[in-house]
Amino acid sequence: MTAPFTRRVALTLAAAVLTATAAQADFPERTITMVIPFAAGGSTDLVGRVVAERMGRELGQQIVVQNVGGGGGSLGAAQVAEADPDGYTILMGTVATHALNPLILKQKPYDPVADFAPVSLLVVVPNVLAVNPELPVNTVQELIDLAKTDPLAYASSGNGTPLHLSGELFKSMAGIEMTHIPYRGSGPALTDVLGNQVPVIFDNLPSASGHINSGKLRALGVTTAERAPSFPDVPTIAETLPGYETYTWNALFAPAGTPPETIELLNAAAKVAMADPAVIDRMGTFSATIVASSPEELGAHVQAEMTKWEPVVQEADVSLD
């Protein structure tokens, strides 16, 4: 009985492998879901929707965006980490999901390395310090001076996000106090700042750029070391606080265990999308720098980002349950 049973098992396993291989060869055969781990309207949402549309055309299947906000991006990231590793659920990850949350969260809902298969680092994005125009400040220094005499609050896309830490680093370097008001994404945070419920915001430049151009927000400074090409008249915060620098990035990840050939197809589609002149122009409007890396390069980038942000998190003494 042992030999026939063994042969049956072997034949069954061989058939399963052949079926899986054939299925992957035909990937994608149905709609793909791209999880955006923040509320609609923020930088990651804007980048994700542009990329999803163009990648979908390249792959011949629609890529549907699903916003899963909360937990500074950890809820959406955890959802993808637990998804079937077949390429039909992918994550638009950020520095928050793959560097900050693993350092900040006491309860770890996922491992940023072991639970994901890197696909491609897409863009690097500047952040911006902006205020409601009713706040009587026009420069970073004027904001610092006001905060020393008048209690202020600043909004961000959530606890533990790079925008939260941008604010904490700013407070530390400027020697001021400002109350942090976290939201479930840049969209809701912007709504309250535009309505002057909160006077100050640290936001990604892509999601804030339209409001800056319309005059509904006043940009005081970008967080990168160099001025943003799309807003050359907006100084860097470092011009007032030498050494200040933060930024965010967007990258595609799949669940760990996704077949290498599927990762290769997703990576190839991402590279085609990021080379499209229309996508390049769209990203350029908010000074996002296109990278379009290999999976291996993204994996190395995640490791480097965790190393870079660890001392910042420790200095800010940020931890979340």
Rank of each mutant, 00 (worst) to 15 (best):
T2V: 09
P4M: 03
T6G: 09
T6W: 10
R7E: 10
L11C: 14
A14V: 12
A14N: 08
A16Y: 01
V17N: 06
L18Q: 12
A20S: 07
A23Q: 07
Q24A: 15
D26R: 13
R30E: 12
I36R: 10
G41P: 02
S43H: 08
D45R: 02
L46W: 14
V47W: 02
R49H: 08
R57T: 01
L59D: 05
G60P: 03
Q61S: 09
I63F: 02
V64K: 05
G73E: 04
S74F: 00
A77C: 10
E82K: 10
E82P: 01
D84G: 07
D86Q: 03
Y88C: 00
Y88A: 07
Y88I: 06
T89Q: 10
I90C: 00
V95R: 04
T97C: 00
T97W: 00
A99P: 04
L100H: 00
L103S: 03
L105W: 00
P112L: 11
A114S: 08
D115R: 04
L121S: 14
V123F: 10
P126D: 03
N127I: 09
V128T: 01
A130T: 01
E134A: 15
E134D: 15
P136K: 10
P136I: 08
E142D: 11
E142L: 10
P151H: 06
P151T: 07
A155H: 05
S156W: 08
G158L: 01
G158V: 07
T161K: 05
T161R: 01
H164A: 09
L169E: 13
L169N: 07
F170R: 01
F170L: 10
K171E: 14
S172T: 12
S172V: 04
M173P: 11
M173Q: 15
G175Q: 09
E177F: 10
M178V: 00
T179N: 09
P182M: 06
Y183H: 15
S186A: 15
P188N: 05
A189P: 11
L194S: 02
Q197P: 02
P199H: 08
V200T: 08
I201K: 08
I201G: 02
P206T: 14
S207L: 04
A208N: 01
S209G: 10
H211F: 13
I212E: 08
G215C: 08
L217Q: 05
R218S: 07
L220S: 04
V222A: 02
V222P: 09
S230H: 05
D233F: 07
I237C: 06
A238R: 09
G243Q: 04
A251E: 07
A251I: 12
F253M: 15
P255V: 15
A256R: 12
P260I: 12
T262Q: 04
I263R: 12
E264F: 08
L265K: 15
N267R: 04
A269S: 11
A269D: 08
A269C: 12
A273C: 07
M274E: 03
M274S: 09
M283C: 02
T285F: 04
S287T: 09
S287N: 11
A288L: 04
T289C: 03
T289V: 13
I290A: 03
I290F: 04
S293H: 13
S294V: 15
E296W: 08
E296Q: 15
E297K: 14
E297Y: 05
V302A: 00
K308I: 02
E310R: 14
P311T: 02
V313P: 07
E315T: 14
D317R: 14
D317A: 14
V318E: 03
